[in-house]
Design a protein around this nucleic acid. Structure first.
Lengths: 215, 215
DNA sequence: TTCAGCAGTGGAATTATATCCAGTATCGGC
DNA sequence: GCCGATACTGGATATAATTCCACTGCTGAA
């Protein structure tokens, strides 16, 4: 085996393709062709699919068997134990100041979800309050699927805790300067200097679920 | 579908082939071609494999997808599946003009969801294309949870079919006059008169799921 | 005895598929 | 300003794979 330890992170588009391959394989029983990928993604050129596959192979998450039709194999990291089946995710409501997010008291409900739905894995669902992320399609009352993490990359939606308040914002960082950006012109960005302000990343947003009424 | 209740027993040779298909699929990640089967079995003619596949299909233990390379699916007697009261919802991608939404060809994936998540019950997930419902928090690529229904009330988000095109819009009706309203000022409302225009409601939106990309 | 199912050979037409080539456009880093 | 990476369109081509055809030979049931 070759060493692809660094494992560059996938772009959004690339993980979308990877998930599509997994899903189509699951449904049909065999991997898709380039043309099928292109059709599902809405590409008008099969080559767009081909290029993505090459990129995924280079990053070590996909195997391509030269010459074989549908010769794709997703390299599963096989997380310890359970691969498929269901996960039961807690729905976290209002988070009291000073207490950890996942405190039992905050759990409003538990839903069973298909783990394939989100990448990376969602650990809990946070009920979003307010309209500060409206233009990112995250509305009041929505459930934000959150992957627990203490780090974030610029551009990601994060769950952050500043001085005992938990908030959902888009994260941007340059050196010691961090911005927590709302996606709604009616709200003000939050500017932080890591040398003096405390900031704790609680997780990154990996999905949104909205049910009923708001629609 | 078809009734293959009697299920003729397989011959020695046939179950050997079936086992081979299962094994090769397991190790390589995708089903074998006729040529590969022939080679593994020692046939000098690919047609020998083809004939066996036809026989297996006739006996109901194998599915052959015409035209698709490696289009073989072993009919498993449902290993674990159907757990509790989980529903398995199909994800519907691009809907070809003139074909029913739930045609098997449109299914991109299947996800297990907790039925409590949406009310009323979601029957399928439709992948939304375009930004015409942006201000309702429904973005390009989102999955719209749809409850099948041929009727809608004013104000609901509907999946409608007009002249072979499937679209997601907000529904408004006064007498014979129907409006299909985008939630984005860049798009034009669609005005219909039920006395002359054809309109088919395919379902009403009961939820939204977004995974990854938009975030 | 004829017929249907089983188990193959051999060849060939036609798709399906992978893969290459030449472009366009945007983005962030050096 | 140039470069590599990303994300595509569009067309061409060789080959991988399905599928049809015409055969041979066996066996057991009607």
């Amino acid at each position: 085996m070759e060493a692809n330890a660094p494992m560059d992170p996938l772009t959004e588009r690339q993980s979308e393709i990877l998930r599509l391959i997994r899903d189509l394989t699951e449904v049909s029983g065999f991997p898709p062709t380039r043309a099928e990928i292109a059709r599902s993604m809405g590409f008008r050129s099969v080559n767009a699919a081909e290029q993505h596959l090459r990129a995924l192979e280079k990053k070590g998450v996909l195997e391509i068997l030269a010459g074989a039709s549908r010769g794709l194999r997703v390299r599963e990291p096989r997380p310890a134990g359970r691969l498929g089946r269901l996960m039961e995710l807690p729905v976290i409501g209002r988070v009291a100041a000073g207490s950890p997010i996942l405190a039992e008291a905050h759990v409003q409900a538990r839903y069973q979800l298909d783990p394939n739905l989100f990448t990376p894995r969602a650990d809990y669902l946070l009920r979003v309050r307010g309209m500060s992320m409206r233009d990112a399609g995250i509305l009041d009352g929505d459930l934000l699927a959150v992957h627990r993490s203490h780090e974030a990359r610029s551009g990601q939606v994060v769950v952050a805790r500043l001085a005992d308040e938990v908030t959902v914002k888009r994260f941007r960082r340059r050196g010691y300067s961090v911005q927590l950006l709302p996606e709604n012109p009616d709200f003000e960005p939050i500017e932080l200097d890591l040398r003096q302000d405390s900031l704790a990343i609680e997780g990154i947003g990996v999905g949104v679920i909205r049910s009923g009424k708001g629609l």
